[in-house]
Amino acid sequence: MPEFKRPHALADVTTHYCPGCTHGIVHRLVAEVIDEMGIEGETIGVCPVGCSVMAYDYFECDMLEAAHGRAPAVATGVKRANPDKFVFTYQGDGDLAAIGTAEIVHAATRGENITVIFINNTTYGMTGGQMAPTTLPGQVTQTTPYGRDTSNEGFPVKVCEMLSQLDGVALAERVTVIDPANVRKAKAAIRKGFEFQKNKQGFSIIEVLSTCPTNWGKTPVEALERVKTEMIPYYPLGVYKEGAVR
């Protein structure tokens, strides 16, 4: 009989996420990979500041809560002290691509053997929907009330494209979770990231195009549609870099 149940590494609690927020799907995928690899006891996660700030309550592995943007540095500290353990960060776009840009770039270029789960939902969800580094041109947010004007706010940061230029990166892949087929691909990418880490083959980042129905002012189902029609054309899915760096 086929079964589908909560993975052990995902804590049996109700999350604080809004209805339809895809954080929950991505959490489950990370937990499923941890279960399938049998590494919960050897895994240490690092949470960001942002909507997933309380992810430390949602995973059953040991967890650390980092300062805003610093998760890759915190993960580096954990990993260097414990090179045989699995270390992942779970970060949003404000955390990773704005305040934490230096930390992510340098963890990547060092080829730090960690796996980064990067949630791109084009907004600062936790603080109520301000412009993120990934906010699309023209997108209305609380701090771009007339739409993101590239002559004033500049352009979105394309994280996978940028990091794929660095020699320390073993995997840079952009996925989404808007339908079951894409969820499967996202999980496969996360698994790949952990496998690179297992083999000490370099830094891996999996960027997940995600939704924020609340701050987008859309229903959860409409939000999935926006990922397809607006985000994917700007942030094409796919593998940007793959291969062991050492």
């Binding site: 240490i44 690092v46 650390l64 980092a66 300062a67 610093r70 540095a73 915190v74 993960a75 580096t76 500290g77 954990v78 990993k79 260097r80 002290a81 414990n82 230096a102 930390e103 770039v105 340098h106």
Partner: peptide, 18 residues
């Protein structure tokens, strides 16, 4: 050698946390 003092102290946070 970290990329900044900010990163260095956060590496300490992670390492000490483990």
């Amino acid at each position: 050698q970290a990329e900044s003092e900010v990163a260095a102290i956060n590496m300490v946070y992670g390492c000490a946390g483990s």
